[in-house]
Design a binder for these strands. Structure first.
Length: 291
DNA sequence: CATTTCACCTGGTGGC
DNA sequence: TGCCACCAGGTGAAAT
């Protein structure tokens, strides 16, 4: 289940491998589910465009695209200098992996995995494929001449400041766990890292967001930063033929403290980890460490 | 308007 | 061994 650290890892991998390459042609399945933009429009928009950069916004992977002939910025590898590139960017391809989405980089000859919904033939001779069995993923194409660039509604948990973080939750009565999962508030936090950061901060998932003290919220902000940063660090391992997707490598070996450890002893105090349902999702916490 | 619930999907699991 | 109910969860629409 790709959340912020996984999507960050994948986006970095795609950027490293695809930057400067061009899309010769694109095919899409007829299924309506994975497409926010009609498949035909995506195929037409992608064809002939160059990949200038790829980066993460919330849980989305954003491909910055230029029209044929526009030279990619060959100087920076880190993608931080966006102003130079942005002049050439005239379209975006936005990929959301949902629960089971994967991006695979293969040769055109290799047989397509089941549930392959999109195939992008690249000028380099490779092929980028979008595979998603459960079809919770979403694909969108934006022509920047006609619509605004993609922006997540929520704030980035890795860069949000102390004061902003406090004011985010002050006005919300819902459970803090549900608030963390709300992408309109914070972009990128999913079930795993919500549970893990609440444990790290010593806060029970059912606490009302607007009842948390200033210092508790600051503990939570720092816990989120710690957990997400560490997960990104562990997910940084590279992969040979596919762009890291489902947690089989790196981050999945992250030592979870509570997530899916129901009944197992807390790593800190040995109390059995408890499982409840909050906002319709499995929620794990230590009844002693979290108050 | 804020909050909660549910449908969308398929593969894996555990019970019988 | 096979079958089936059930669970997993990100998101957005529908309900409360």
């Amino acid at each position: 289940m790709p959340e912020l650290p996984e999507v960050e890892t994948i986006a970095r991998g795609v950027d490293k491998r695809l930057r400067g390459d061009s899309i010769v042609q694109a095919w899409f399945t007829r299924l309506p589910q994975p497409f926010k933009t009609p498949a035909a429009r995506q195929a037409k928009g992608l064809a002939g465009r160059t990949v200038l950069a790829v980066h993460r916004v919330g849980k989305h992977i954003v491909f910055e695209l230029g029209s044929a002939g526009s030279a990619p910025d060959a100087r920076g590898v880190d993608g931080t200098r966006r102003t130079q590139e942005s002049t050439a960017v005239d379209a975006q391809w936005i990929v959301h992996l949902g629960m089971t989405g994967r991006l695979l980089l293969t040769t055109p000859e290799s047989t397509a995995a089941p549930h392959t919904h999109a195939r992008l033939a690249l000028a380099s001779g490779r092929e980028l494929r979008f595979v998603d069995p459960r079809r919770f993923g979403r694909l969108e194409f934006r022509d920047l001449a006609r619509s605004a660039g993609f922006g997540a509604p929520g704030q980035e948990p890795l860069t949000i400041g102390k004061h902003e973080f406090v004011s985010l939750f002050r006005t919300h009565r819902l459970c803090i766990k549900a608030a963390l999962l709300n992408q309109a508030l914070l972009a990128g936090v999913g079930n795993i890292y919500a549970d893990e950061s609440l444990f790290q901060a010593g806060i029970r998932p059912r606490r009302r967001a607007n009842r948390l003290t200033r210092s508790e919220l600051e503990r939570l902000r720092l816990a989120l930063w710690q957990v997400l940063s560490e997960a990104i660090r562990l997910g940084g391992s590279s992969v040979s033929d596919y762009v890291d997707a489902d947690g089989a490598r790196g981050f999945f070996q992250l030592e979870h403290c509570v997530y899916q450890r129901t009944g197992e002893p807390c790593r800190r105090c040995q109390t059995p980890i408890r499982r409840i349902v909050v906002a319709g999702r499995g929620t794990h916490y230590c009844p002693k460490c979290q108050r």
